[in-house]
Design a protein around this nucleic acid. Structure first.
Lengths: 140, 140
DNA sequence: TAGTTTAGTTAACTTTGTTAAGTATTATGT
DNA sequence: ACATAATACTTAACAAAGTTAACTAAACTA
């Protein structure tokens, strides 16, 4: 690694440590980060299935199945067997689930706010642009 | 959240998902990311103790104790009771441990390389600078 | 219509974290 | 000097969240 790469490596190490350390903090409304992420995914998508969530988060369907069971038992989501193809379950948030998503300042939101506090508007734009460019390359 | 914050939020979401999904991949030499991170911390520091590692990674001392036991049993690190204060254990890598750290391209290293491929040198510098600034604010 | 594929579930297990209580060692206040 | 407190670490019992493998039920297909 050359100098610029090493510098980037260091700050990225910091960021990674921070993300890992803070991910499962908070437990807003008794909901863990994993639950929150799944609920958010359901909220933002349309006709979301378990399989899709498993692929999005890159974990096994079995794991998602367990989480969805928990969320259903706790009345945060509803699972309704699709009438078109009864192998699928349409997932939607309950009122309570929607309330949590709407009213929780999550981890990323708090980072975003801190970002706009510590950087100028132009800096934030540049950072967003560069991160976006980076992510494009990384995800290949 | 305003527009710039929302944009940042989106790309940060991407980044976070990626980090979480890819963290425990690889298992280079049969060593998980957690083991790797601890070993790297021991390697880079001097007179590292279990307590320090626990604080650095923000997990309990008990968890670190278990990981250190595993690493010692697998001859990746050595724990030697300090002669100055016998409550402490000086941690060092074994030859095998050092070999692994020296010869593994870890997750962050591969990101750094992709970063320098997808961005110009100036862009990478700017990104590093802005991320650094952000991290300063975030860690308060 | 028999065989295959797909979505999801369940069971048994692993990893990695937690808290609480314990040991051994060192520091401290009277 | 010595009881008490603090520190570094370990152990045990447990919890959360993931894994694989085997299963059900539904839909596709040749």
């Amino acid at each position: 690694m050359n100098k610029s790469e090493t510098d980037f490596y260091q700050v990225f190490t910091d960021l990674q440590c921070f993300i890992l350390a803070n991910m499962n903090r908070g437990n807003i409304h008794g909901v863990t980060a994993t639950h929150y992420n799944i609920m958010e995914y359901i909220y933002r998508g349309r006709q979301v299935t378990g399989k899709q969530i498993a692929e999005a988060f890159q974990i096994s369907q079995a794991a998602i199945s367990k989480q969805l069971k928990f969320l259903t038992e706790n009345r945060l989501i509803k699972q309704q067997q699709s009438t078109i193809d009864r192998r699928f379950f349409d997932l939607t948030l309950t009122d309570q689930g929607r309330y949590i998503i709407d009213n929780s300042e999550n981890f990323r939101e708090s980072i975003a706010k801190k970002a706009s506090r510590s950087l100028t508007k132009d800096e934030l734009k540049t950072l967003t642009l560069l991160l976006h460019k980076l992510m494009q390359q990384i995800k290949e």
